[in-house]
């Protein structure tokens, strides 16, 4: 796992919203095959960081490198370069069918046979999506919509999969199911994953390494299991005492 060079590298990233500094020099590395979590409270800048990587909000400074090469700044070029996002709040295309949503995810792919192959893999990971492929995405349950958002991001055959708050608004049992499937995505497809989560415990249990983001700065990083038992983290993000 520990390649010399990270597959995705964020260096000294700054993002401003008007006069407000949302990110104040974020550094982060993701190595091939690992799951990296970024945890932090509401408003810490987690989603902003994802949007900045995706080119959805402009950077005020810093570099983002994919395989050592600068990542383009426009969204569509970022996806083509090999990074795709399952956005916060899922954002599935409600009036399109599940199948059409997945086809949208594969938009950058030119080769139709590659798309068909990837669709098979996604259906294998999320059999529920295959069952509901003709259904409108808007009629799916929250958990199914989340699966669709993840599957849709996978359809682009990314090098790195970004997940923004996949647990948002879901029941605990559904969250467990989604996180179990994410482990499979990582293991079966060898997919490198960068996940930002408010649900710190789930994210730390899922990931290999983690970063703690607080008011636009990384304040701590390390092995996820170590962070899980770090008293400071427990106090601030895991609700005090462990069950």
């Amino acid at each position: 796992m520990e390649d010399k060079m990270p597959i995705l590298s964020v260096k000294n990233l700054f993002v401003n919203y008007g006069a407000i500094q949302a990110l104040k020099g974020v550094d982060l590395d993701v190595y091939a095959g690992e799951i990296v979590a970024v945890i932090g409270a509401n408003g810490a800048g987690k989603s902003t960081m994802m949007s900045a990587i995706m080119g959805d909000v402009p950077r005020a400074g810093g570099d983002i490198l994919l395989d050592g090469k600068p990542l383009p700044s426009k969204s569509f070029q970022v996806v083509t370069a090999g990074i795709s996002l399952s956005p916060e709040g899922r954002k599935v295309f409600a009036p399109l069918t599940v199948y059409e949503n997945l086809q949208m995810g594969a938009f950058p792919l030119k080769d139709r046979s590659l798309v068909a192959e990837q669709l098979k893999k996604v259906y294998h990971l999320f059999p529920r999506l295959e069952e509901r492929q003709g259904q409108y995405a808007g009629t799916l349950s929250g958990g199914e919509q989340q699966m669709l958002a993840i599957g849709r991001a996978l359809m682009a055959m990314p090098r790195v999969l970004l997940l923004d708050e996949p647990s948002l608004g879901l029941a605990p049992i559904i969250i467990s199911e989604i996180f179990k499937e994410l482990t499979e995505v990582n293991q079966l497809l060898g997919m490198t994953i960068l996940i930002v989560e408010q649900n710190a415990r789930k994210a730390l249990l899922l990931s290999n390494r983690a970063y703690v983001l607080q008011t636009g700065k990384i304040i701590m990083e390390g092995d996820s299991k170590e962070l899980l038992y770090n008293p400071e983290i427990e106090e601030a993000y895991l609700g005090g005492k462990k069950k």
Partner: peptide, 11 residues
């Protein structure tokens, strides 16, 4: 339905 999300799909 959502122009911004379409952009995130690589459009």
């Amino acid at each position: 339905y959502n122009l911004r999300t379409a952009g995130l799909m690589g459009v």
